[in-house]
Nucleic acid binder design. Structure first.
Lengths: 163, 163
DNA sequence: TCGAGCTTTCACAACTTTGTGAACATTGGC
DNA sequence: GCCAATGTTCACAAAGTTGTGAAAGCTCGA
């Protein structure tokens, strides 16, 4: 078993980062790969590099990378002069993905609660509970659009300020 | 095996409801109990009623109810004239709990990203990535306070309007 | 078109999670 | 204070999840 060549302090931090993402509901290996890309000093990283650094099999890396690229948190980068695939954290990937997920979830709950109101009747006890749930998520959904716009403005200002 | 006495249409809806919560990351049985309380027509429900309706063991119900009361989504209601414990969906439990969870998660990420910036150095490639992540969650956290206040106002108006 | 280098897929084993059933603990009425 | 009704805990079995290793599949350059 070869030891990975990486600053132990950085490896510790990377694993802690992955652990937090795991608590969010992200799969273990997916979280570790994301964390590795997040703390990587080089702009892009290859699958063998990830496998060695994380001490994981090529198969596990392949699956995790596929998940991350599918949901748009990581992107495959064309790498002239190299036959290996290169990957990096997608610009905006984090919040685009998170926000998209929340938007979908909110819509799902709105529909679900709406169906419930129809099922139990809108003037029943359960009907009122479900209707308030629906109203809450409809409210959150509408607020989210506004927040996202505010963030994009704030982010652009930050980036511009970074000389 | 005794068949549960419940409208099949309602039982289907209840299971669908639980499934959506499960996709949110809630444990299966916890989600089923919450769904059962949500669609119940009676204001409160006992553990044996939940066990029969959900066709689950008393042990599983006990565990799920404990989880739900601990996080504040369900409350134990004193029931004069009955030796059984009665439970109901906590008023405000849903969004208090969800919002509290998000607030904690946001703070955790802010701290995590902050530590990362210190670990890798703020002028490194990774430092910039981590710093933007930190800024995003700090932004979300501050916006959330405002949203919650708006919702409470909107909710009170809704309730007042319900004659 | 062939071969070398990468990546993907898949069966399996290790591990984790979840719910049951039964024993144990608690509570309230008599 | 006792007994019966309820609630809780725990060991274990079933089910599900995750990562490995190896084999199969691509792809690019010659």
């Amino acid at each position: 078993m070869t030891e990975p060549v990486i600053d132990p302090r950085l490896a510790d931090y990377r694993e802690r980062f992955a652990l937090v993402l795991t608590n969010f509901g992200m799969q273990r290996m997916v979280a570790r790969v994301y964390a590795a890309l997040m703390v990587a000093e080089s702009p892009t990283t290859t699958m063998p590099e990830l496998a060695e650094s994380l001490q994981a099999s090529a198969g596990a890396i392949s699956g995790a990378v596929k998940t991350l690229t599918t949901i748009g948190m990581v992107e495959r980068v064309p790498a002239p002069g190299s036959r290996r695939d290169h990957f990096r954290i997608a610009d905006n990937g984090w919040y685009d993905t998170v926000m998209h997920k929340y938007r979908v979830m909110a819509q799902e709950i709105i529909d679900l609660a709406g169906d419930g109101v129809e099922t139990v009747g809108e003037d029943s006890v359960a009907g009122h509970r479900l209707d308030e749930m629906r109203a809450f998520y409809a409210f959150i959904q509408s607020e989210m659009e506004e927040i996202l716009q505010h963030w994009e403005k704030a982010r652009d200002a930050r980036r511009a300020a970074r000389t």
